[in-house]
Design a protein around this nucleic acid. Structure first.
Lengths: 258, 258
DNA sequence: AAGTGGTCTAGACCACAAT
DNA sequence: TTGTGGTCTAGACCACTTT
């Protein structure tokens, strides 16, 4: 380790540890050297060691666990399949296998539901094509798996459409809110998905118990009826270390003609 | 600002600035107070101020620009539409509008292509269902927009299938590599998309010129022929601050029957 | 009681781009 | 030349969990 004409020491320390994680010297779940050990090893101040470790933490490679030490992160993402709304089963064996491999079988799911009536945030109002002053009903859910928060899901509906339906009750709807909407005459036949990737807000980090260096996918799904009316916007916040998002696509006959 | 029985000072400083960014007091592109000013304002050491600012940087809210100061980040994501492979035009007016709004019209695209023959990484070999020792051809692309790196795209093909085709030449294939594959008798009719969300590796951060606090989407697309043979794996690394990923879905007739 | 990381201080020198 | 953030030091005290 040389400190002349090279990268700063804290970056060299981070790179050395990164290397050991990559090549398996430090396996998933293994403990890193303590700050004191690294301070001795590299003959630098503790601040410099901490600067290097902070890099790894913010890359999501390492998790500091006070007062035990730093550990290499383990990750095993579950599959998240937006298409499951419209299609319960994958139509190909490949997808089927993939879903099975990343399933939540044997794990205990739980969710908390909260319902509110509110003025829609601007991005929701726009997607639902609402006029000023029109209200929405929102069903907020936190989903848990084995006692760990898994994702946040807020579904917004124009209040006009769902008032006095069971969508306003903070209970589990086993057949799905979409089915209730369909019974009310608003069956969704088309959906538009948007996926944004960003760091969580402090509030999201707290609710999802996210460590530093864990980004989220922000999934916005807008559902439309046959005549093009938007009737639902679902916003899901998915921690990157707990999900893999999948889609399956088919070439359509009409395209083959081109 | 109180330092008894409350959050640490550096978190309070970060929260105050975060608030000003959220409510528009500090607009996108605006300069934050300097470290020296914050040190005076909050009557803390410079280290504490830096700790707070580092939080915001790692959240992707703020960009440090030496030696000018810290600035509120601007972001304007372009649309990324995996389905465009199979369907050149959106089939709904809503999607069409969305794509137009986030289009790259008037911007100058550029790409660099590099071709190699190699032993496939394990995750690629698995998706292509290759035996040990089978080689792949890989076309590596960096795409630029207005001189800014936009995304990385590596496409892998079993070498058996594409040897002596123009896929091995490091030139732009205007009709698309998929079309070449189709001409060779391997038309893709189905694709499986996987999306992972994580922090970039240092190498990715360097190649894409990513600032701290910018996560990436890691998009793996596996394409299959009619008889279920995987013939292509495309790996795309998408910086979160430059992309919104979209999908469009339709309920299928067969599902309505359920 | 011991050892871990978390917070904070007060100072120092450096590299760099704008003026 | 000036002022910015970037790197680094040596020390201090704290909160927490394990032993």
């Amino acid at each position: 380790m040389n400190r002349v004409g090279r990268a700063p020491m804290y970056q060299q320390i981070a790179e050395a540890l990164r290397q050991q994680i990559a090549d398996g010297t430090l396996a998933a779940g293994a403990q890193l050297p303590t700050e004191a050990e690294l301070t001795d090893l590299y003959e630098v101040g503790r601040g410099t060691v901490r600067q290097g470790l902070t890099l790894l933490v913010n890359e999501g490679l390492v998790v500091p666990t006070r007062p035990r030490g730093y550990f290499v992160r383990k990750r095993e993402p579950m599959v998240f399949r937006p298409q499951a709304e419209f299609r319960k089963r994958p139509y190909s064996v490949e997808m089927d296998a993939f879903v099975t491999e990343h399933s939540a079988d044997g794990r205990s799911p739980r969710q908390m539901i909260e319902v509110a009536i509110m003025e829609p945030p601007q991005d929701i109002a726009k997607r639902l094509q609402l006029e000023d002053g029109q209200l929405v009903a929102v069903r907020r859910r936190i989903r848990w798996l084995d006692g760990e928060p898994f994702n946040l899901n807020d579904s917004y509906f124009p209040l006009d459409l769902v008032s006095e339906s069971e969508i306003l009750r903070p209970d589990d709807i086993s057949r799905g809110a979409n089915e209730v909407l369909a019974e009310l005459g608003y069956r969704q036949v088309r959906a538009l998905d948007e996926l944004y990737v960003r760091m969580p807000t402090p509030d999201e980090a707290r609710r999802l118990e996210l460590g530093a260096g864990t980004p989220v996918a922000y999934h916005i799904c807008t559902g439309y009826t046959e005549n093009g009316q938007p009737v639902r916007v679902a916003v899901t916040v998915l921690p990157g270390d707990r999900h893999v998002i999948t889609y399956e696509r088919k070439r359509e006959a009409s395209e083959d003609a081109q």
